[in-house]
């Protein structure tokens, strides 16, 4: 019986062995979190201060001032009055339905996550574009980051850093950073070979090539990556609220568990509104910044 059981059942590890592995890994992680949790937390302190400061800034500044600043920024980026009035209407509706504070919180955390993703993602993307070895190591990591269910890494992060904004930011960044990395890599790799050769032939240093040719020419692709990153960050808002990140995610979560349809819909719509605003503004900014690429006479 025993010696042939592998035919009908997968010859898996005995429960005892598996248990030993699981227990020892878990307790190792617990020890690690006990020993290093504090210093890791301290490492993130500046980010936390900035997050808290930025959120308070958005919430405590009078709403009309914040609104004016947002519309001003949108206009500066897009030069489109149509878009500005759309943004204004969306935010007025959000405020009118009593979601102003939560929206500001979400806006703050998304902004910070986006900035972080860009600051970390673009250099990694550049590294990937320059070295095939780096690419072969980073690509599977990005695959993991995008497909691993968030809670699998959320709970260890909570053990390490507690609940609140920092683990939230980490979760969002892990989920949202892959597009900007992938598309930075792609954009740089797609830069016209001859243009790059021209720069080299005229004696450009690697740095001059990078900042003078590769990044500017990869910009449309990188912008597409940033756009996707923002969208994915917004999609993570609800998941992040499950580890205590304040904002539009919490009412959504509350309405899911309590079946408050209207509450859920309103807050969901506010998230959608933010997403559309971010999307349109970043796209139209990208288009405006790349105007020279469109041939106007002969193409």
């Amino acid at each position: 019986m025993i010696d042939s059981s592998w035919l009908t059942e997968f010859p898996d590890m005995s429960r005892r062995e598996l248990l030993a592995i699981r227990q020892s890994l878990d307790s190792a992680y617990r020890t690690f979190s006990r020993d290093y949790g504090e210093s890791i937390e301290n490492f993130f302190d500046p980010l936390l201060y900035f997050l808290v400061w930025f959120e308070n800034l958005l919430i405590e500044t009078p709403w009309w001032l914040v609104l004016a600043a947002i519309v001003g920024l949108v206009y500066a980026a897009t030069r489109s009055w149509k878009l500005c009035s759309g943004v204004l209407a969306a935010f007025l509706a959000i405020g009118y339905f009593g979601m102003w504070e939560d929206t500001m919180r979400t806006l703050s955390i998304i902004t910070v996550c986006t900035i972080l993703s860009i600051c970390i993602g673009i250099p990694i993307g550049i590294l990937m574009a320059r070295s095939d070895r780096a690419k072969s190591i980073i690509t599977p990591m990005l695959d993991i980051m995008q497909t691993m269910p968030a809670f699998v890494y959320l709970i260890p992060v909570v053990m390490l850093l507690g609940i609140g904004r920092i683990p939230g930011v980490i979760a969002v960044v892990i989920y949202a950073i892959p597009p900007v990395i992938r598309l930075t890599n792609l954009g740089i790799r797609l830069v016209n070979q001859e243009t790059l050769e021209a720069a080299t032939a005229y004696g450009a240093t690697p740095t001059q090539r990078l900042f003078g040719v590769q990044i500017p020419l990869a910009m449309p692709t990188i912008m597409a990556g940033i756009n996707q990153t923002i969208m994915m960050a917004l999609a993570m808002v609800v998941v992040a609220s499950m580890i205590g990140v304040k904002g539009l995610g919490q009412p959504v979560l509350k309405s899911i568990t309590n079946q408050y349809f209207t509450l859920g819909l309103l807050n969901g719509l506010a998230i959608v509104a933010l997403a559309i605003i971010f999307d349109r503004v970043s796209q139209s900014y990208a288009k405006r910044a790349q105007k020279h690429l469109e041939g106007t006479e002969n193409g």
Binding site: F151, L154, I155, V158, M159, G162, I163, S241, M242, I243, G244, V245, G249, Q250, L253
Partner: peptide
């Protein structure tokens, strides 16, 4: 946010 968040904290 969630029971996991609470027990984690």
């Amino acid at each position: 946010g969630s029971s996991a968040g609470l027990s984690g904290s």
